[in-house]
Amino acid sequence: MRQNEMGNIRTDRFQMALKEKSGLLLVLLILMLIFGFLTKGRFWEIANLINLLRAISLSTIVAFGMTLCIITGGIDLSVGALMAVSSTYCAGLIEHNAPTLVAVLAGILMAFAMGTVNGFLISRTPIPPFIATLSMMTAARGVAYMYSGGRPIRTPTGFGAVGNGYLFDIIPYPVIIALVIMIIMSILLNRTKFGRSIFALGGSREAAVFSGIDIKKTLWSTYALTGFLCGISGVIWASRTYSGQPTLGTGAEMDAIAAAVVGGTSMAGGVGSILGTFIGALIIQVLNSGLNYLNVPFYYNNILRGVVIAGAVLFDMHRKSGRGSVTAWFKSLKRGGDSADK
């Protein structure tokens, strides 16, 4: 009897999570159906679907960290630059014949250290996250250029397995790594004190203080963890391209923010989920790759992506507000929007 009840509670929670994401999944499905129809089914081929996953694998790893930062009410603009630092250091050490494992760890460690500096600035000084990570973004990019001498660092083959190998000859390793990280991050956010502290901090910083939550530690760990994830992503990238690129991840911060926001994370803080960010990244990539498939010129592709990001967020917010019909929504806009409802 008791077992049964617990079982029910668990499925309830799962169903609730799905229900919460139903709007996003619907958007994803509609997009995929449209592209499936327009490409006469080619879009749904296994190879293409796996390509989709591989294309987002490295950017989602970073976006998961970004999601945590945004939930605390902050942001991390340095993610792309940290990826570049990690990839150049990793490749550089391999070029100098360091053992692969050492090179990989060193690359990750560099990004982690820089994330720690972000965390220090944000938790111990009054510099706001936007400015602190903007400074780090600039400085870290400089470090990557300095170390690599401004050119890509080539690595010999043999290092490429992590980035280019397949599990069972079909699923790329980066996809596996991204999925594993997704599960770990999900657990971290939903089942640990750290995760709850992040939500409390973003929901109300003062309430978190009055509840005895260690704000400094929470913030510091969040940005350090994000740096660590950037490190992993950068190293895999180096492996995949046999090179360390100082230009790697230019604009990656914006992609990560877009994935998080499309996935339902609120820029105001206090709301968001890892699964949401994953679906958000998928939506953007499906659109991207679908439009490519249809040979839509690059410029139009960008315009449409911009429209869809805004549209997906609007659609999801509307569904969550539970106002029902679209006409009711227009009425509320006429009355001055939701803000009038105090």
Partner: peptide
């Protein structure tokens, strides 16, 4: 501002100051 995380639920808020008792590791 100080007492509650307004966007969160009743249960979340009640257990906010006793997380040590409710969450053990993962």
């Amino acid at each position: 501002e100080q007492g509650l995380v307004l966007i969160q639920g009743i249960r979340y808020n009640i257990s906010l100051s006793i997380m040590d008792q409710i969450i053990h590791g993962f």
